[in-house]
Design a protein around this nucleic acid. Structure first.
Lengths: 365, 365
DNA sequence: GCATCGTGATAATGCGCATTACCGTTGCAT
DNA sequence: ATGCAACGGTAATGCGCATTATCACGATGC
């Protein structure tokens, strides 16, 4: 407050008490040029009508270095320049331990990507949660501060996605999205799921049960489609069971369902469930994979040490994040990215574990 | 480009093609007031000379809701208002798996804290690494965009810390810092280390070896001091050995040193080392804790499942992050935080594991 | 000697908002 | 009638930068 008053009385001469910030005007004074020239030099403009001899450039740059001047990002942004800030919005809290396995590798990839392209990351953690989910658009959101936006989450609100497009906020979703206008980088769960299931079926399994989430997220649907395709291709009927809604600690019910089905192969969408079922099997004296094979359509980021390696899909999550940053950066650069390249699906490798084998003899006719 | 031209020709009437952004001026038009009034209403100013009847406020708020107007954060910032953005700088990359255990819980706490106070997080990932460490001040840094700064890292550059103070960037360090001007929230490693070592010594150990990093980070030094205090208090000499510089996979050498020392108690600064030594012991047929006790002065965020529980310190990292956000927020609020409260040390609990017991009989005289 | 051109800059403007100084009305007491 | 508060706002300004139109000046051409 006192600062303000003094500044008002005498903003120029009295040692500029307002935090002594160095501005382009100050640089200009010191270098004996105009503010405009400083800006032009800083932005290395050489095109068209702008001509500034090297001599002058050097002089200005010298002052800039000496004063350790740094441009104010807000002012840059307001004046229409890019900021090299990528927004990151996660529909679920990013770090809490439940979804840690999911987000952490993604963020690691995003961080690496951002570092490479020289961008900072703005995490929109202020988004208030309404009905358990965060909302992207709230009064006082700071979306516009970022040049572009990365969107993470299992399920996204299509209404919000559309509004992003409307508002001209350049966005890349991490994970395939059905909303047509949204570019994304996803994982080809359809092919991968199909491949894994086909590999399992090729071993001779005929009684198969598939445990999956009931959700409607694109990735969930994709995995189901992959399984369905494999079933159709083999002419087999695969039992289908939706597991308890959330992180379902009710694995006992699932295990019971598996036993009652008489299946020799369990396809578990979630790796945690696969592990849990494996534990149930061990406890019940059932040999995996001798009596029962188990495969998972995903990976925990960090399998417990020494734990059984489930045969499973290993989504390349870090690469996913890095690719998303790369795509967003391309789009932001103004380059005209062809539609085909704005929707990327990364292949998802299969990690061979020790839980898949041919069915027991008595189960084969 | 085309957009720009059209705008230049006719910025007002032609449907404002510049992304159709809604501004306060537009709100003002629609509500039949001036831009200033809109700003005053938005910021809920009621003090002093500003008087706007509820009627007008309502009318303006209605337009704001209908148009889904959101203030431009850059403009707000440029005009001197707070932005509710907290900068986060990590001296090491935040996510890569090596330091994952370290940063992830911290970030989780920071995220939770930020969510609570309604702030976004700006991760300065663009900071270029010079000589393996990131540098905070680089041309084009965007520090000023944030209201304040959280600083993470084992070791920080004192020069940069001082410059932060000089430049008036309000900062809170996560982890105790020796630079006097920097507020911090840290962990009381001195007391905790001392307590753990004293607890161990009370069991009768007389030959003790302490393996620690050679670094000069405050937290490293604190742990060493705690151990030293415990040694002094008990009148015991504790062998002291600096381990290999980095993530030291050379645990064999350390194990050899332990064996040669004839120690009955190993104090390992790093939990990973403790685990490795435990494995060595198992391999060599040495009983832990029957023949050899092992304690660690830290925790891995996630001990491998089923692995031996090392008796250790469990730094409350998530709380640390949350407290740091809270402190920074207090400082930013303009509240005059007393010096004593600007340097916080959280107590660090001991997690009882299965690797600490009395020394074997033959080792006691 | 006058027009022309290239050179090396600069003045002016606006981005969207917050803030302060001020201004026109009306009601009320003097 | 006159003053004078209280009321309900508004005009103007600046934050720091990017950008465009323009200008002064010397060199060159004819």
């Amino acid at each position: 407050m006192i600062m303000r008053i003094i500044t008002t009385l005498d903003g120029e001469i009295m040692g500029r008490p307002d935090s002594g910030r160095i501005t382009q005007r100050r640089i200009a004074e010191l270098a004996g040029v105009s503010q405009a020239t400083v800006s032009l030099v800083l932005n290395a403009r050489t095109d068209g009508t702008v001509r500034i001899p090297q001599e002058t450039r050097d002089r200005i740059m010298k002052v800039i270095e000496e004063t350790r001047y740094v441009a104010d990002p807000s002012a840059r942004r307001l004046a229409g320049a890019d900021n090299h800030i990528l927004g990151v919005f996660t529909y679920e809290p990013a770090f809490p331990t439940e979804s840690l396995d999911f987000y952490t590798p993604l963020l690691a990839g995003i961080e690496a990507g951002a570092e490479q392209v020289g961008s900072d990351l703005l995490l929109f953690t202020s988004a208030p949660a309404v009905e358990g989910r965060r909302r992207l658009f709230h009064e006082r959101n700071r979306l516009r501060l970022a040049d572009g936006l990365l969107l993470l989450g299992v399920e996204m609100d299509p209404v919000e996605l559309r509004r992003l497009v409307e508002d001209g906020i350049r966005t890349v979703a991490v994970g395939r999205r059905d909303v047509p206008e949204i570019p994304y980088v996803g994982i080809d769960y359809v092919s991968a799921s199909r491949a894994l299931v086909e590999q399992a079926l090729a071993l001779g399994h005929e009684k198969v049960i598939f445990l999956h989430r009931a959700g409607l997220g694109e990735s969930v649907l994709d995995r189901r489609q992959g399984v369905a395709e494999a079933a159709a291709a083999s002419g087999l009927d695969i039992l289908d069971r939706a597991t308890a809604g959330t992180a379902g600690p009710d694995t006992a019910a699932d295990w019971l369902a598996v036993r009652e089905s008489g299946a020799t192969l369990v396809i578990a969408e979630q790796p945690e469930l696969a592990t849990a079922l494996h534990d149930h099997a061990v406890r019940d004296g059932i040999d995996v994979p001798g009596d029962l094979s188990i495969v998972a359509l995903g990976s925990a980021a960090r399998p417990g040490e020494g734990a059984t390696e489930i045969t499973r899909l290993s989504p390349p999550r870090a690469e996913l994040g890095a690719h998303a940053v790369a795509l967003l950066t391309r789009i932001l650069s103004g380059e005209d990215v062809p539609a085909a390249e704005r929707r990327l699906l990364l292949p998802c490798p299969i990690t061979e574990g020790t839980t898949l084998a041919a069915p027991p003899l008595e189960a084969t006719r």
